[in-house]
Amino acid sequence: MIRLLMSGLLLAASPAAGLLPDDPVLRTLVEGEAAEAGGDHAMLLDSAQVLKALGASPAEGQEDLAARWTHAANAAGITRSALGFRGRALGPAYRRGSLDAGGSVTMRQIFFAGQRAQILVAPRGNSAKLSIRVQNADGGTLCAKPVGGPQADCAWLPLFTDRYDIVIENGGTTTAAFYLIVR
């Protein structure tokens, strides 16, 4: 039942143009940003509720977009009862960022042994020159991909609990914005 409801919300909330990421959290972030830019407060509230239902929360130091979107929709007079959902205790963490031309950012993240690790990146707007690289503690590259199309992802099963470097680079000549999901 909840899958049907969420699928309907996601279809109803999709932006008119452009490809959408396959990952539901990335797709919801892109749709929410489109709703915010277009002043569609009903869609904005739907995106906030879906983001909460998916169990996504902001990475440390990042703004809670679901809270901001809910506040904006409520301020415009849009209210609905919250979706009921039970899911992962921690859920995915999201980060919104941008890089100057030629810039890069490295984030360190611990992943647990025997638990699937996944990192997804989606460009915001015209950010076609982004790339992602994941390196283990020894400097070995586990994944290196351009962020083309709606999203790029890296997934693996760590054999040992360890820290990994997530490197996002902008090889373009203009500032590039992105969403990052860490599961």
Rank of each mutant, 00 (worst) to 15 (best):
residue 156 W to P: 09
residue 131 S to I: 01
residue 138 D to Y: 12
residue 86 R to K: 14
residue 69 W to H: 05
residue 7 S to M: 13
residue 171 G to Y: 09
residue 136 N to T: 08
residue 44 L to V: 01
residue 30 V to R: 00
residue 65 L to F: 05
residue 93 A to F: 15
residue 18 G to R: 00
residue 91 G to M: 05
residue 39 G to C: 02
residue 163 R to C: 08
residue 172 G to F: 09
residue 124 R to E: 13
residue 126 N to Q: 14
residue 17 A to T: 07
residue 178 F to A: 05
residue 7 S to Q: 13
residue 102 G to L: 09
residue 56 A to D: 12
residue 181 I to W: 08
residue 157 L to T: 06
residue 78 I to G: 09
residue 124 R to P: 05
residue 120 L to Q: 14
residue 86 R to A: 13
residue 131 S to M: 01
residue 104 S to M: 09
residue 174 T to Q: 15
residue 110 I to A: 14
residue 33 E to D: 13
residue 59 A to Q: 10
residue 66 A to S: 09
residue 35 A to S: 03
residue 45 L to H: 00
residue 46 D to W: 13
residue 88 R to Y: 09
residue 128 A to D: 14
residue 28 T to P: 00
residue 125 G to W: 04
residue 153 D to T: 09
residue 98 S to R: 12
residue 99 L to A: 03
residue 136 N to H: 04
residue 85 F to H: 11
residue 144 A to M: 08
residue 4 L to K: 03
residue 16 A to I: 01
residue 93 A to P: 06
residue 136 N to C: 08
residue 53 A to I: 15
residue 31 E to M: 08
residue 105 V to Q: 15
residue 156 W to Y: 10
residue 177 A to N: 10
residue 146 P to G: 12
residue 98 S to F: 12
residue 145 K to D: 14
residue 22 D to R: 03
residue 133 R to L: 11
residue 20 L to H: 00
residue 56 A to E: 13
residue 134 V to N: 02
residue 99 L to I: 03
residue 159 L to R: 14
residue 177 A to Q: 07
residue 3 R to F: 12
residue 93 A to K: 15
residue 66 A to E: 03
residue 83 L to G: 05
residue 138 D to S: 13
residue 122 A to L: 06
residue 26 L to W: 00
residue 85 F to T: 14
residue 104 S to A: 11
residue 87 G to V: 10
residue 159 L to P: 09
residue 182 V to M: 14
residue 34 A to L: 02
residue 61 G to H: 07
residue 82 A to N: 04
residue 4 L to E: 10
residue 149 G to H: 08
